[in-house]
């Protein structure tokens, strides 16, 4: 198969970028999207042109490293998959394919299609954990957790932290990411002691980092490779409201 690529090239954060045209020639239909780019890159290297920089690691949809917007869709067409799980047979022979980086003020471009998502790490650092000093834990079965709750927590915990939600959101909002962690930990009995401070600190850090707010378009849910439900955002809103009231009451004495 052959494709015409329009690829965003940008030397670094401080220079302007632009689209460049490339031809992807003789691509096997069984190749993955990233393997197609590998082939294009090998061709570029052979022609003494700098290869296109893009992130990937596991190449099986779990590490969350790959991060392309293909034809205007974060992780490309198709439900519940990452860019590395996208295969060329999905495209038409001869098709023009637009490839852009995840775009958000909070995800500055590092080079070409690579963005800096450390903002997500900072949000987790602000409270996305349960403090449990190593070695101090009680027996694992001392706290039974109903299967329904445990399963729901797992659904939220499945987030791979790729950032597609913020990339797809017209407001570059990180709410789905934050909601997933808040719900995962907030649903579990172990997560209760820090529930108030967790949501407060994570949301305020999210705001400070320059993510937008949620206007309930659900673009995030549509592209999420882990199929995290946007209803977790509602849970986040509720948790945040409750935490704010608690905070207010505590401040008044």
């Amino acid at each position: 198969m052959n494709f015409k690529l329009k690829v965003w090239r940008q030397q670094n954060e401080n220079t302007a970028g632009q689209f460049r045209d490339y031809e992807a020639i003789n691509i096997p239909a069984e190749a993955s999207f990233l393997e197609m780019l590998d082939i294009v890159n090998e061709g570029l290297i052979a022609r003494q042109e700098e290869p296109i920089a893009f992130d990937s690691d596991c190449r099986e949809g779990i590490c969350g490293m790959c991060s392309l917007v293909v034809n205007g869709i974060a992780h490309g067409p198709g439900k519940a998959k990452t860019t590395c799980q996208l295969y060329m047979r999905r495209f038409q022979d001869g098709e023009t394919i637009w490839i852009e980086p995840f775009r958000a003020a909070a995800f500055p471009i590092v080079k070409d299609l690579i963005v800096d998502r450390s903002a997500f790490d900072r949000i987790i650092q602000a409270g996305g954990y349960i403090t449990a000093r190593t070695g101090s834990a009680p027996d694992a079965n001392s706290i039974p957790i109903g299967k329904t709750v445990a399963d729901l927590a797992m659904e939220a915990a499945a987030c791979i932290g790729c950032g597609a939600c913020a990339a797809a959101c017209p407001n570059s909002s990180a709410m789905l990411f934050v909601a997933a962690k808040i719900s995962h930990l907030g649903l579990l009995p172990q997560g209760q002691p820090e529930r108030t401070s967790r949501v407060r600190n994570m949301v305020r850090t999210m705001d400070a980092l320059g993510f937008g707010s949620c206007t309930n378009h659900y673009e995030c849910e549509a592209v999420c490779p882990a199929e995290i439900s946007a209803t977790f955002i509602s849970r986040l809103n509720r948790d945040y409201a409750v935490a704010s009231i608690r905070e207010g009451l505590a401040a008044r004495g």
Binding site: A140, K147, A150, A153, L188
Partner: peptide, 22 residues
């Protein structure tokens, strides 16, 4: 055995049975 205790305390959502145990 301690690993499982530690992970559960951190909120790792291991699969559970209907009774709520692991």
């Amino acid at each position: 055995a301690n690993i499982i205790d530690q992970c559960v305390a951190q909120g790792v959502p291991f699969a559970r049975e209907y009774g709520g145990l692991l």
